[in-house]
């Protein structure tokens, strides 16, 4: 028999991991990733079955989905969006740009990867990644929402900078036919 306190805690953990409200911030990407993120909410991928709601207000969000390479103009905005979110929260970097600048790496206005600005928990590679894999990334971040970051560190849970790397799938490797 577990005490009511333990039951309540289990319920809270469950609720926190089953209600990921996402905040999407485009940090200078090309729209490809952003559209695919919206696509996860559409009938075919039905992200709402995991409790996902796309909220506009960072302060109501749990998971920050960032796309695009951070640039000099939006770095501060990204940082403030992240700071406005309440713990427990997680950051998922969607797309190659968000991981390291992608195709834009080295371009004049590019900082190169959002990891420079906010602690990223999950990287979802791809240019753009398919909606399935964006969802996979969100799901990979769910366990991190059970506890606030500080509690996570104290109890030896997943550390703040743990990275879940999703390998590219076979069908996503584009082969150019030899002419």
């Amino acid at each position: 028999m577990r005490g009511p306190r333990a039951l309540w805690q289990a319920w809270v953990r469950r609720s926190r991991t089953k209600s990921p409200w996402i905040v999407h911030f485009d940090c200078g990407g090309c729209n490809g990733c952003d559209i695919e993120i919206l696509d996860t909410l559409m009938p075919r991928f039905s992200a709402e079955r995991f409790g996902v709601i796309n909220v506009g207000d960072p302060r109501q969000g749990d998971i920050l989905l960032v796309t695009g390479p951070a640039n000099l103009r939006n770095a501060a905005v990204l940082r403030s969006v992240y700071d406005q979110m309440a713990e427990p929260k997680a950051v998922v970097a969607v797309g190659s740009c968000a991981a390291h600048g992608g195709v834009f790496r080295g371009a004049p206005n590019i900082l190169g990867g959002v990891g420079e600005l906010v602690p990223v928990d999950v990287f979802v590679p791809g240019c753009p990644p398919t909606p399935e894999r964006i969802l996979e990334g969100v799901i990979a971040a769910l366990p991190l929402l059970a506890e606030p970051r500080t509690a996570r560190q104290a109890t030896g849970g997943p550390s703040p900078m743990s990275i879940v790397m999703l390998e590219p799938r076979e069908e996503e490797v584009v082969r150019v036919p030899a002419s």
Binding site: V12, S15, R16, K18, W21
Partner: peptide, 8 residues
Amino acid sequence: QPWYDLTK
């Protein structure tokens, strides 16, 4: 879901 959301 509404209960989860509320608790969270």
